[in-house]
Design a binder for these strands. Sequence first.
DNA 1: GTTTTTGTGATTAACTGGGTGAAAATCTAT
DNA 2: ATAGATTTTCACCCAGTTAATCACAAAAAC
Lengths: 263, 263
Amino acid sequence: MATSDNVTEAVDVLQQLGLKEYEARCFVGLSRLSTGTAKRLSEMTDVPRTRVYDAVRILEAQGLVEIQHSSPQRFRAVSLSEATDTLRDQYDTRVDRLRNALDDMETVDDREESSIQQVWAMTGSTAIESRTNELLDKAESEVVFVVGDESLLTDRLIDKLTGMTRSVDLLIGAPTEAIRTAIQEAIPEATTFVSGLGWLRDEGGDDEETAIGRLVLIDRSKILVSTIVPSTNEEHAIYGEGFGNGLVVIARRLMSQGEFTDG
Amino acid sequence: MATSDNVTEAVDVLQQLGLKEYEARCFVGLSRLSTGTAKRLSEMTDVPRTRVYDAVRILEAQGLVEIQHSSPQRFRAVSLSEATDTLRDQYDTRVDRLRNALDDMETVDDREESSIQQVWAMTGSTAIESRTNELLDKAESEVVFVVGDESLLTDRLIDKLTGMTRSVDLLIGAPTEAIRTAIQEAIPEATTFVSGLGWLRDEGGDDEETAIGRLVLIDRSKILVSTIVPSTNEEHAIYGEGFGNGLVVIARRLMSQGEFTDG
DNA sequence: GTTTTTGTGATTAACTGGGTGAAAATCTAT
DNA sequence: ATAGATTTTCACCCAGTTAATCACAAAAAC
């Protein structure tokens, strides 16, 4: 009976989407029922009967549930598609409001000098991918992209790379020869190589091997390196900018000495 | 100085999107700064300095902020587009998970008889519009659509109506002759009329006039009527289904007596 | 070496939300 | 109609969370 797993999953997600526990449980309960009374719902979801009313009222106000004002009252959930429509709309509205508010805000400019040694840390694959895309978009002359972890080599990324302007040199490093060939085929205009990333691996340590995720060097002046921490599978990245930036300098030096390329 | 309004607006929305107050304030603060230390951030956002660190750490884990691990630490917010990308991705993931979980759930079928007198109440324009669309999609022979409030006559709605199958009769009622003509032009295959909705207005009461929002009658067996409550601008609807449903019977009777049409 | 700034952790106060019961309103069956 | 059951509202308590403050160690600045 995987149903109960799905119930808890659905309840969890609904809570992440902003519903309270009772509201989430009631909505999920109603989703499994064509129609239900407070009593029935309470029995099935373990929400105290006296609290079902509050929860359902809030759900109704959010457009997720309909109420039949009879006695006893009957409740029913809107269809899944209606529910997701409503939730999406709610989300879109919020992001729009956020965008507008942030756009209209005056930025307090401190003129903190941009010291040369800025190295920033970030977490999360989406954020890192988003930054990667932005970097690729702003590239003017050269992109070095070393893929360390196969899982990061998505179709979306290939599309992005193939879509780059001709005037930008593309240097792509793959972890294995097989992958290199595949990439070369998908992106003929790129120069590909097999990356020798051995020096980046923590083979000696007693904990798991720290694999490199991606390494992006843009116009020899911006760099992003990510690793995937084995225990949590989270992607962590560091990012540096500026021709004189320490991290960038090291990367450039390694590049010119052929350290990235095999052998 | 509308900036402070925008700040509170942004903070509010971020909290609705799931951030805590301190996190929201810190993110907004950082969005106005190219870069900031804990001290600076604390001064500008009134978040206790010692709590800035926790807040920022969580923001970093969500991909909304980058941290420079120096002393003192420097923080900065990712760009607005990166932030919304991240948030959208998070949202999409959640809705997908929700959809899957709900889809896979066994529905406990109670065989609650569908008594004839079901009349359901719902709230919120998005939910109501969503339901309206679903009704239009399922219409087989006839659609009566009376628009009471001009604001509901969106392009999206026009598109929806023009896209209906030929085999469905379209009867559209507009609040004024001018709007009727416009609709007739946009949707030539429909029969249009000016609705005489006087009887639906609460002109005698001492509170504001209760305007009707929309009235949708599908295949003479399903009906949805909405009103827009003047004080909050919220849209409330009732919905009935079944040929014998009381609400539907009344609507059908009124239709046949020409009560909806002018004069 | 002293003083200031920065960062961490523990502690308290306020709030929110889950859980329970009393009592009002409503319904059902005599 | 009346008694008893059921439904519904409301107010309250308790626990976990989050906002807010403090004490203190580590690091930088002087």
